[in-house]
């Protein structure tokens, strides 16, 4: 480590390289393990946004859809800040969608602790779910495909279309 690096680190301008290594690894392994290529992920992201946008207005600049991994379980985590519901104004509500991609036992749909919305769980995340969710609440939606091994992640993304 050079003197410059040391000074930068002490000033908090630069994280320790071990931290960078860990973050980069976690990201790359999440992709390796799920077998999802960037194009597929991008397509899935668009389709998720499309579905969610039918119910609520999303802050498109703040949208974050990424794969995260812990304990050899990879999760698709979508953070979609909601500007307002299509019917009623609900500023500042955030919806979090978690998809269990690989392995079992991953909790889905950690809705942040906002009091108003009830959880409207859309079973398979298809557009058929629209009827179920006609109650016009802006909702954090939990979509969870059958937890299964690698191929299920692809099927899961397809069924969203």
């Amino acid at each position: 480590m050079t003197l410059r690096d040391t000074i930068y680190r002490l000033l908090g301008l630069q994280p320790a390289s071990a931290t960078t290594a860990r973050e980069r690894l976690q990201l790359v392994l999440a992709h390796d393990r799920s077998d999802l290529n960037p194009e597929l992920l991008e397509q899935m992201r668009r389709e998720i946004l499309e579905v969610v946008s039918r119910y609520v207005e999303i802050d498109l600049d703040e949208v974050d859809v990424s794969l995260e991994t812990e304990d050899r379980v990879t999760a698709l985590v979508a953070n979609l800040p909601i500007r307002r519901a299509k019917a009623v104004a609900q500023p500042g509500v955030k919806a979090t969608i978690s998809l269990g991609v690989k392995g079992a036992g991953l909790a889905a749909g950690n809705a942040p602790s906002s009091p108003e919305p009830e959880l409207a769980g859309i079973a398979e995340g298809t557009s058929d779910g629209a009827t179920a969710a006609e109650a016009e609440q802006p909702a954090a939606q939990a979509i969870q495909p059958e937890p299964a091994a690698e191929t299920a992640s692809l099927e899961g993304s397809e069924s969203l279309s």
Partner: peptide
């Protein structure tokens, strides 16, 4: 290097690989 956080720690590796 581990002490200086310039190398992945033992926990980092065991956590990641489980």
């Amino acid at each position: 290097m581990m002490a200086n956080q310039e190398m992945l720690s033992v926990n980092d590796v065991t956590d990641i690989l489980a």
